[in-house]
Amino acid sequence: MFLQGSFNTISVAALIQTLCHERRSVQIEAWRTDANAHICLSEGMIIAAKCEGIEGPDAIYKLMSWSNGLFRVGQLPEHFAPTMAAEPEGLLLEAARQRDELMA
């Protein structure tokens, strides 16, 4: 583990954007009272995502709705098998769009 913190300090979007900008190959474990999430990044791409039992892009949209919670960032396990390959910006913007339209 080389980074940990709270989503009160850095938003989900900012954390993912920063790690992807730096092209880190890492896993993010996140949790709050009744839920947890697991996101894997490799070379600037999101290669796996699970949140509250949901997988894939929808897991990112779900995680983006968290306004609090804790996270730790650690090394991606060797030989990790990707389950998706998505540019982070497209997913994060889509999550914001869905949230805006839901609240409209």
Partner: peptide
């Protein structure tokens, strides 16, 4: 996105 209600999206993009 320009419509008024896309406020979260605009903020994310301005970040």
């Amino acid at each position: 996105p320009g419509q008024v209600y896309y406020d979260t999206s605009r903020r994310l993009i301005l970040q």
